[in-house]
Nucleic acid binder design. Structure first.
Length: 155
DNA sequence: GCCAACGTTGGC
DNA sequence: GCCAACGTTGGC
């Protein structure tokens, strides 16, 4: 079982949106970066746990935890001309982009802010902290996961 | 809104 | 395959 960090912009899709899903599961679609795609396709597995990270907002940081409930399958938005994620170069016979399904397992009472993460000496190796890193699907080590969990205010 | 740091595109 | 131009991400 592996750990991950998925970024999302709360103004587009927030953890509150994830929490409100009556279907319980949510497709994590719209990933349009090859490195992130490769991780989703080749390494993210059923049962893996994911930190949900809010970016491009007043307080960037980790806001909760989700679980992977379905492994990679073609992202439908790439074939939908109405979607902001439409990719005219992707062939239905050979889909370029994939998505996984996730289910919320826990919402933190308080954001573990990027500011706090950057201030934690033991987390300096996180991809998130590395200057210029924009990767939206990131691996998190067991040690990093435990440290971040201990920093979270849990309900 | 600014801008650094990336990633992608496309001409050559 | 190189690399300039352009587009995007995301913190501040």
């Amino acid at each position: 079982m592996a750990y991950w960090l998925f970024k999302t912009e709360p103004q587009t899709f927030s953890i509150e949106d994830l929490a409100s899903r009556t279907e319980q599961t949510e497709p994590w679609d719209g990933i349009r970066n090859y490195q992130a795609r490769n991780l989703l396709r080749d390494q993210v597995r059923l049962g893996d746990l994911v930190f949900i990270y809010h970016s491009s907002c007043p307080e960037p940081g980790i806001v909760g935890i989700a679980k992977v409930v379905r492994e990679a399958y073609p992202d439908a938005t790439q074939f939908n001309p109405q979607s902001r994620y439409f990719d005219p170069k992707s062939e239905p016979q050979q889909p370029r982009w994939v998505q996984v399904d996730v289910k919320l397992t826990e919402m933190f009472a308080q954001t573990v802010s990027l500011k706090r993460i950057k201030a934690e000496t033991r987390l300096q190796d996180m991809i998130l902290v590395k200057k210029g890193s924009r990767l939206s699907i990131q691996p998190v080590t067991d040690a990093q996961w435990q440290i971040l969990l201990s920093m979270a205010k849990r309900k």
